[in-house]
């Protein structure tokens, strides 16, 4: 079979390298029965569009963030709850256990099968005015967030003014004060140049959203058992590579922006932030009562 795959990142990015490795491994492990042609840089459409294309069978493979899968598979939206994971290792413990299975099942019902989990680090707040140490520091701030009610709810509960905005406009908006701050992981903070215009990076790590290598369910189910195992194995090996490259990239980006004069601060006590999220969780669980077990499972995972 000839497969096509989607990835939003540019050449040289950890995910791009890992997806190329995945393509290479799939071909190798299936003895050339399956080949995968990767389209990097999001050239075949935006992330939500590509998710739809994989579900409809126009593409077989995609490297997706779970954030935009949330509106489609409710289970996947759980990872978009602020502060749901303690840290990145905690996230992987959940994903490699029963929690990951529940999320995978929800995605499978929508025609997407996750083959392996990739690391996308933790997202933290940055702004041009001051270090953030407590929710009061966010109060009154215009913060750019991605399009998701949970993210805008989070900023609102912290007393800020959530401002959804196209990603491409954020640099200029930060520079000129249309927004005061934004939030992202180290590599994005560095590669977008946002550190040049918003020099305070506060390690809130409020969102830890994993990524996945996903496959169209029909394409996967049409495989023989050996092929399934080979594809899965290829994805797992690429994930190992990705996680290693990601860690290196995070360190490089952090070093780079700190050398450029960015002020970073750890947040000694994240308790007040987490307490402020109680209404967000309550509203969410009221609207999605069936997801309570999953949320509790994640919270109970050591």
């Amino acid at each position: 079979a000839e497969w096509r795959g989607w990835n939003i990142h540019v050449e040289g990015y950890p995910n791009t390298v890992a997806m190329d490795k995945f393509a290479e491994l799939v071909e190798e492990k299936t003895g050339g029965e399956i080949s995968l042609q990767m389209f990097h840089g999001g050239t075949l459409g935006s992330q939500p569009d590509a998710i739809e294309q994989v579900r409809l069978g126009g593409l077989e493979i995609g490297n997706f963030n779970l954030g935009p899968i949330g509106p489609i598979a409710a289970e996947a939206n759980v990872v978009s709850l602020p502060f749901i994971f303690k840290d990145v290792p905690h996230m992987f413990r959940v994903l490699n256990g029963e929690g990951g299975e529940m999320i995978a099942k929800g995605m499978e019902a929508k025609g997407l099968i996750p083959l392996a989990w990739y690391d996308a680090g933790a997202r933290s707040f940055y702004n041009g005015a001051k270090p953030i140490n407590a929710p009061e520091d966010v109060a009154g701030m215009k913060v750019r967030v991605m399009n998701n009610d949970l993210y805008s709810g989070m900023i609102a509960e912290l007393g800020g003014n959530p401002s959804p905005m196209a990603f491409a406009e954020v640099y200029q908006a930060l520079k000129t004060g249309v927004v005061d701050g934004a939030e992202n992981n180290w590599p994005s903070y560095e590669s977008t140049g946002h550190f040049e215009v918003a020099g305070y990076y506060s390690l809130s790590q409020h969102l830890i959203i994993p990524e996945c290598v996903c496959i169209n369910a029909d394409a996967y189910n049409a495989l023989s058992d050996e092929q399934k195992a080979a594809v899965k194995e290829a994805a797992m090996e690429s994930a190992e590579l990705q996680q290693q490259l990601w860690a290196e990239r995070e360190a490089t980006s952090r070093k780079m922006v700190e050398e450029a004069g960015v002020v970073t601060n750890e947040i000694a006590d994240k308790g007040p932030f987490q307490e402020a999220m109680v209404p967000v969780y309550e509203a969410y669980l009221e609207a999605n009562a069936d997801l309570r077990p999953l949320v509790e499972l994640i919270q109970a995972t050591e």
Partner: peptide, 14 residues
């Protein structure tokens, strides 16, 4: 909304 009310209406974009 952004400048006067300091509450950006988040529904406008969509």
């Amino acid at each position: 909304g952004r400048y006067v009310l300091n509450a950006t209406p988040t529904w406008v974009e969509q």
